[in-house]
């Protein structure tokens, strides 16, 4: 283990870790937006929306995220869509994880007892009000943990954008492996930083989950 080397290169890794954090946060936000819309579509009364939701989930979960990213980043310009690598990364990964989050959110919503909807409708709430004031607040508690699993996968998934040259942790590790021929050292630094990000996020999720408990 070459500790001098580690001390010399670690500032680059810290900077790269910050990019990974930014990617993770933005992707999570976009994923939650897509996931919420997707879940609403899948639970809609209208067949068209249900079908759109089902196709979204099936296609984006059924093909590799890397390919989706490549279609957007390299295929986009054929349609006049020129995105920089970071933006393409956020959009590609966000829409991808959104498909997984759709199922998580839908699962939490359908786990709420049917009697809740029936009771809310009986006391005169509209369908929208029922969802907004009765179902979602209860379902939100149930989704924190499984969404945490999605977010954990997403953080590791941000490594994919190294393939479109976004200078994040994995790209930086790869670049330094190439220039120093010290793969283990580079793996150690970047691995440790990933673990810190994932551990901190996990603690945050647990905290939220505990706070949201009723009892």
């Amino acid at each position: 283990m070459d500790f001098d080397l580690i001390l010399r290169v670690y500032p680059f890794f810290i900077e790269a870790a910050w990019v990974t954090v930014q990617l993770s946060v933005l992707t999570t936000l976009l994923g939650l937006a897509c996931g919420t819309l997707g879940a609403m579509a899948r639970l809609s009364r209208l067949r068209v929306f249900r079908m759109i939701g089902a196709v979204y989930v099936s296609v984006f979960r059924g093909t590799p995220a890397l390919i989706q990213l490549f279609i957007l980043y390299f295929g986009g310009p054929q349609f006049g869509l020129h995105l920089d690598a970071f933006t393409a990364g956020v959009i590609g990964l966000g829409v991808n994880i959104g498909a997984y989050m759709t199922e998580t959110i839908r699962g939490a919503i359908i786990a709420i007892d049917k009697g809740q909807t029936e009771a809310a409708r009986t006391v005169g709430l509209s369908r929208f009000q029922t969802m907004r004031y009765v179902i979602l607040p209860q379902a939100a508690r149930l989704m924190i943990r499984p969404l945490g699993v999605n977010i954990n996968a997403l953080i590791k998934g941000t490594a994919l954008v190294a393939a479109i040259s976004v200078v994040e942790l994995t790209y930086t590790a790869q670049r330094f492996i190439g220039s120093t021929y010290k793969p283990f050292e580079m793996f150690m630094i970047s691995g440790a930083l990933y673990m810190i990000i994932i551990y901190a996020t996990g603690r945050g999720i647990t905290w939220l989950d505990r706070k949201a408990r009723i009892v």
Binding site: K156, G157, T158, A159, L160, A162, A163, L169, T170, A173, Q174, I177, P183, F184, F187, S190, G191, Y194, M195, I198, Y199
Partner: peptide, 14 residues
């Protein structure tokens, strides 16, 4: 705790 892509780099180059 680490991305698969990073592990592949480690195994292939390491």
């Amino acid at each position: 705790g680490t991305p698969l892509l990073l592990q592949l780099f480690l195994i292939y180059f390491g």
